[in-house]
Design a binder for these strands. Structure first.
Length: 185
DNA sequence: CTTAGGATCGCCT
DNA sequence: GGCGATCCTAAGC
């Protein structure tokens, strides 16, 4: 259990529970407002075709990070779910900036709070996610994950930017948040 | 506001 | 050799 969440549960159950929790990376971060679940039996998942060099962290212990490079440019952050060897995870897609605002503004090259962490690639840049964090535990530096203090209103919908399993409603968000990568509809 | 194209590279076929 | 769990900019309505 980390931040009150059992990461051994299925990713589509963990993903909504993560909404409202506070993620810090080296003290910089904020409230998670958007996530997506991916599973082994899921054509859209990196783990679908089995373990490989890139996705091996997804098949590691739950409650750890899976970091991958998207389009040769963006480092994106996932939380590993299920039992070791399963191959599931939750993509962290957007955060409401709370801590280290100036640091994130400098890394992103903008003062606009809504442009700091509103997407997996932006978030990776704002939190300075690097490949060295791949496989790191989420309850130890550089990571810190804190349980949400209030109940949250959730919304769900289809995942973004994928070409397979387009209809699966495994994207979750904080209802009404201004810090989403895209609105829910 | 919506769409189209380019950047850029590690991984898998 | 092709293709992304993306982002940014520019151009079109």
């Amino acid at each position: 259990m980390i931040a009150g969440i059992d990461f051994a549960a299925p990713s589509h159950e963990v993903a909504p529970q993560l909404i409202g929790t506070v993620l810090l990376v080296n003290g910089v971060g904020g409230r998670i407002v958007e996530t997506e679940a991916y599973d082994r039996e899921d054509p859209a998942s990196h783990s679908f075709t089995g373990p490989s060099q890139r996705n091996r962290a997804m098949f590691g212990a739950p409650g750890h990070a899976y970091v991958y490079l998207s389009h040769g440019i963006h480092w994106c952050l996932n939380f590993v779910c299920r039992e070791e060897g399963h191959g599931a995870g939750v993509l962290i897609r957007a955060i409401e900036p709370l801590a280290g605002l100036e640091t994130m503004q400098a890394r992103r090259g903008t003062l606009d709070a809504r442009q700091l962490c509103s997407g997996p690639g932006k978030l990776g840049q704002a939190l300075a996610i690097v490949h060295a964090y791949n496989g790191c535990a989420l309850d130890a530096p550089p990571f810190a994950l804190a349980a949400r203090v209030e109940p949250v209103a959730l919304v769900a919908g289809p995942r973004i930017g994928i070409s397979k399993a387009v209809e699966v409603p495994w994207r979750f968000g904080l209802a009404g948040s201004r810090f989403l990568s895209r609105p829910f509809r």
